[in-house]
Design a protein around this nucleic acid. Sequence first.
DNA 1: GTCTATATATAGATAGAC
DNA 2: GTCTATCTATATATAGAC
Lengths: 229, 229
Amino acid sequence: MTDVARPRRDSGEGTRRRAKRGPGRRPGPTATREEILNAARTMFAEKGYDATSLRSIARAAGVDPALVHHYFGNKEGVFTAAMRFPVDPTELLPRVMAAPKERIGETLVRTFLSVWEDETRRAPILALLRSAMTNERAAVTLREFLTTALLERASELRGTPKLRVNAAAGQMIGVMFLRFVLRIEPIASASTEELVELLAPTIQRYFDEPGGTDGGDKTAAPGENNGHR
Amino acid sequence: MTDVARPRRDSGEGTRRRAKRGPGRRPGPTATREEILNAARTMFAEKGYDATSLRSIARAAGVDPALVHHYFGNKEGVFTAAMRFPVDPTELLPRVMAAPKERIGETLVRTFLSVWEDETRRAPILALLRSAMTNERAAVTLREFLTTALLERASELRGTPKLRVNAAAGQMIGVMFLRFVLRIEPIASASTEELVELLAPTIQRYFDEPGGTDGGDKTAAPGENNGHR
DNA sequence: GTCTATATATAGATAGAC
DNA sequence: GTCTATCTATATATAGAC
C-alpha cells in the first residue's frame, strides 16, 4: 500500500458531520434514543433487516454509530426495540370482531386500511414484512405475531375456520403488497372507498360461510381448539 | 474464516475444494454456466438480491468466484440471467383465460398452484419476490412483468376491470406468501384441493362481476386501454 | 453520554498466471 | 476456460478518550 492508507488524522476540522459541537454529553433531556428508533423503523421499512446497517441508522438519526451500539448492543437489539408492533391487537381486534355479523367484512377492511394508510404505523409493518422475506429471525417474529395475536384469536372470536381466516389475511396482505410495495396500478392509486367496495365482500364471504362452497372444509368449532396446534 | 493471514500458498494440495484437479479448462462440454445459474436461482430465492453474494453463488455452484464474474460481468448480470421467468405467460395465460366462463376461478387457482408447487418454478419467483422487497431494480423487474405480462393482458382477454384483476392477484400472492414464505398454519399444510375450494370462488367473483357489489367500479373496456397509464 | 480510532470480516471487482 | 492473488469499499463490533 502506498500513502493512501489513512487519509484523515485530525478530528473535528476536516470532517463536516452536521453542526460543529464539542465532545461530551449534549445539554437537555435525552430524546436521542427515540430518534434512533424512529430512524431505525424507517430504515428497516425501506431496506429490510440485512440491508440496513447500524451506520445508516446512525446517519439517519444524526448520531454516531457507536451511540447506537451503546443503546442497543447490536443490530438485533435495535431491530427488536424498533419492531414493537404499532397496532395493539388486544384493543383493535375485539372491536373489529364485535361488528354486526353482516358488516364484518367492511369493518375489517376499513380498519386494516386505516392502519396501512397511516405512514407511522405502516413503516414498522413494512419493516417486518421486508425483513421476514430474507431474515429468519424476522420471519419467526412476524409468524408468531400473526398467528397468536391475530389469526387464532380472530378464529376463536367468530368461530371461523382457521383456513378461511388465513385466506382473508392473504387477501389483505397481498393487496397491501401490490399497493404499497410494488405500487402496481390501478390498485396503488385506488381510494379507500374503492378498496372497501372491492375487498369487503370477499372478506365477508370468508367469515360468512363456515363450510366453503361445497362443505368440504375442516372447521374449528367456535370457542374450542380443535387441536391444530 | 482463516486462522492466520495467508495460510496457503501452493495450489491444489492444501486446498481441498471438491476433487483435486489441476488448473486449466475442464474436459468435456461446459455445463458450468447452467450450474452457476441454478445455484444463483436458489441463492436469490433464499436470501434476496442484496444478501446474495457472488462468492456464495460460486461456492454453491462449486466454481471459483472469478468464474462467475467472467460469465456474467457483475452481480446484476447474474441476477437478470437467472431471473428469466420460469413461466411463459404467452403460453400459459391465454390457456387459462380460455376456460369456460364459470370455471375461470378454479382454472386460475389450479394453474397458479401448479406453478408454485413445483420447486424449480417456485424458486425464481420467490427470488424475485424476496428481492423486490428490498431492491428497487428487482421491484421494477417484478412490477413490469406482473403488469404488462399478466395483469393487463388478463384484463384485456376477459374484459375484467383492472382493479378487480389486481384484487385477484393480491389474493393469490398473499396466500402464497403465507403458505411458502411465512409458512403459517393451517394454510401452509393445506392440500391443493382445499385451496381450490377455498380460493376459486373468490377469484371467480372478481372475474364475474364487472361492476362490483354496487356498480361503483371504474372499468376497463375490453380490448381497449382506458388511459389509466 | 458521546465521541474518535481501529480491529476484523467480507463484499464486489480486476489483473494476470496457467 | 479456470484459477490465485489482491485492491477497494464497507460492514459489525470494540476500546478507550473526553
